[in-house]
Design a protein around this nucleic acid. Structure first.
Lengths: 264, 264
DNA sequence: AAGGAAATTAACCCGTTGGATAAATACTGT
DNA sequence: ACAGTATTTATCCAACGGGTTAATTTCCTT
């Protein structure tokens, strides 16, 4: 059945056929097929499929490398639909980027670190950040793409600028609580601290391809990932509390409790 | 004089003129002009100019966004020369990438951390890494580009794979010395440690554009850069030695001695 | 049931871009 | 001085890729 649809599809197009090249998913074929037999409208769904497809495409190839035709094909849509529903390539890209920021900040808000012991709160933040990056590799790629463009699009965005300060404040309160309770040796700039936490996870994952080649070991296999998480938590907590933990004391330790599956 | 040469040049070309668009430097114009009056061969020089121009181009726009014409123009060369001297776009890119790795590993070799106190050695390594990234922003961009391609090109490269293990060993000896001398509390995996050090610097600089927008402060101004270097050194040393330093004790401290101008 | 608006499709347009060709010019050894 | 080779130039082109135009189909309202 699927084969039949695909064939009908492909044959229907002129050469050279963009669809054949890539970007087509079983999902999108079925979605499109359903709408072809007796096609029905679905503006919201279409819009969502386009944005999702665009996210994958931009994350895989960057802004310049992304192909509008592939996005359309992967969304089970016609190229014209992109322009109808969203706008040109850059508008589409910006919308994807804004969505990505919204998503991570939204999940962070559910962490509520306020009710945890300061060291636990920090450990949880590191753990969350790590697993979020691991679960959403496109996010990393999108940020890199935007930085290559020197944040040109982000600067234009009105949505994005306001949504980050609450998060910084959340960290700031954790730090001051930690200092007051004596858990932390001294106050750190929360922005500086968050950048460091993000850095430790981001760089490792975003650059895992080249690092794996250079150092001759697979940095993404299960063991390596677990080890990295331990290392990061130990590094940050040791610096904050002055007490030695985990990796800095012994070579291995059992896996930490992870929020990987707790946060949706 | 320069104006005259430029004009002559531009007029000589057909429309649309690639040269006008961008990528042309005073240097390249003069280099080319000299060779035009009575042009002379300079294969090595040409090759170098092409590679340098390509590095800037790939760093600015990524692999897909880079334009062969702009590279040629910036090198004061004809587009045909790229193919004659190097090969196609991807070959050119790989050569640039290999050159970038060679350069940083070569500078790292001059650090000779062996003769320093372990904590000083680590501080110096952080300081060097930070300033190298600061001085060579193209390096960061190239790595990001290569990671977007999942290290496809690097894997093909024979040169690059061998050149990194000496560096890891250098770090390993520093760590073991530190543990033996009692300066460090426990042994750390040198690869893990290096990735963390690189991460702290790399992420901050590579993502400075988006981070500056998000947090509403210019992360690249002098004060911010100094503060970041202090923070990184303090973070790493505190974790290794267990003693509090710098940022974790007081809000500000005078700038550390920097190797910025020592290493060529 | 019918008219109009919203959504979707097919087909085309045209500047760009990586790459190719062949001719011209400078250098090298003999 | 001359033949042969290395380097450089001018010109061209086929494929690509973002974007557009116009026609077609479904849905909503009355």
């Amino acid at each position: 059945m699927l084969a039949f649809i695909t064939r009908t599809f492909v044959l229907k197009r002129r050469a050279p056929c963009y669809v054949c090249q890539s970007g087509i998913t079983e999902q999108s074929i079925l979605a499109k097929a359903k709408r072809i037999l007796k096609w029905q409208r679905d503006p919201e769904g279409m819009r969502l499929r386009i944005l999702e497809a665009a996210k994958q495409e931009f994350a895989s190839y960057g802004l310049a490398g992304a192909r509008v035709d592939r996005i359309a094909a992967a969304a089970g849509a016609n190229k014209r639909m992109l322009y109808y529903h969203v706008g040109n390539k850059e508008d589409l890209y910006l919308e994807v980027l804004e969505g990505a920021y919204e998503k991570i900040r939204a999940e962070e808000r559910t962490l509520d670190l306020e009710h945890l012991d300061p060291p636990d709160a920090i450990a949880r933040l590191v753990d969350f950040t790590w697993n979020y990056f691991l679960r959403n590799p496109e996010f990393l790629a999108l940020l890199n793409t935007e930085n290559l463009a020197k944040a040109k699009h982000l600067k234009r965005s009105t949505k994005v600028k306001s949504m980050h300060s609450p998060f910084v404040e959340m960290i700031r309160t954790v730090v001051t609580r930690g200092v007051e309770s004596g858990d932390f040796r001294a106050a750190v700039d929360p922005v500086q601290l968050y950048i460091s936490i993000a850095a430790l996870a981001f760089f490792y994952l975003s650059n895992s391809a080249t690092l794996s080649v250079i150092f001759g070991r697979d940095l993404l296999k299960k063991d390596a990932r677990d080890e990295r998480l331990e290392h990061m938590i130990a590094l940050v907590l040791a610096a904050l509390t002055g007490k030695s933990t985990a990796v800095f004391v012994r070579a291995k330790m059992p896996a930490l409790m992870s929020v990987e599956h707790q946060v949706v």
